[in-house]
């Protein structure tokens, strides 16, 4: 449903629903921590980020109408067929070798944290770098855009821009705190 909506906000709502659903899947797989993170980060931070952008770009009914024009069958049939093929192949691969039934065991956050800061410490550091780069990159691009702002946009949107930026960095900071819990 996410991918077929014309209106971005609808799509995002369905996306949130999808995230909730997968979080439930995680829970049932015995990964409660991941399930919580899924809701907090994906459904919380990232969706909010999207919504901000949608708001800021004022994507409303106009966009929906445009989308409806773009989404003609001849546009999507060919990719869809290809992807369908891919799906079929992947399913074939998936079920080509039978495995013994698995038992669900809860992997508690403690064990996760131990391995995270034990054997994966380098990867955690690298992730820190990545997020840092993300912050710096976003800040830089946002700043660059602000310069453009005077030229192309009215003054009114400057504040929104600023909000968005701080918001975004805050979201990422959330990530880090979440990671480092």
């Amino acid at each position: 449903m996410v991918i077929t909506r014309y209106h971005p906000v609808h799509a995002l709502l369905y996306l949130a629903v999808s995230f909730f659903a997968s979080s439930m899947v995680f829970l049932s797989l015995g990964a409660p921590f991941v399930a919580a993170l899924e809701i907090i980060v994906y459904a919380g931070a990232i969706i909010v980020l999207f919504i901000f952008v949608v708001m800021m770009l004022n994507l409303g009914n106009e966009t929906a109408r445009q989308e409806r024009e773009w989404l003609k069958p001849k546009v999507w049939v060919m990719p869809a067929v290809l992807v369908l093929l891919l799906l079929i192949e992947m399913i074939i691969l998936l079920f080509s070798n039978d495995t013994e039934p698995m038992q669900i065991a809860v992997v508690e956050p403690r064990k996760l944290a131990l391995s995270l800061y034990g054997e994966y410490i380098i990867a955690v550091e690298l992730t820190g770098f990545l997020l840092m780069a993300g912050i710096v990159g976003a800040a830089h691009i946002g700043k660059h855009k602000k310069e453009e702002l005077h030229r192309f946009l009215q003054n009114g949107q400057g504040d929104q821009q600023k909000t968005k930026r701080t918001r975004k960095t805050k979201a990422i900071t959330n990530e880090q705190t979440a990671l480092h819990e």
């Binding site: 060919m78 990719p79 290809l82 992807v83 093929l85 192949e89 074939i92 691969l93």
Partner: peptide, 20 residues
Amino acid sequence: LRMYIVGVLAGILFIITLQL
């Protein structure tokens, strides 16, 4: 961009098909 992704997809398909 979409054509590029289609290209990537076709490549993946090709490889998986080969494996199959």
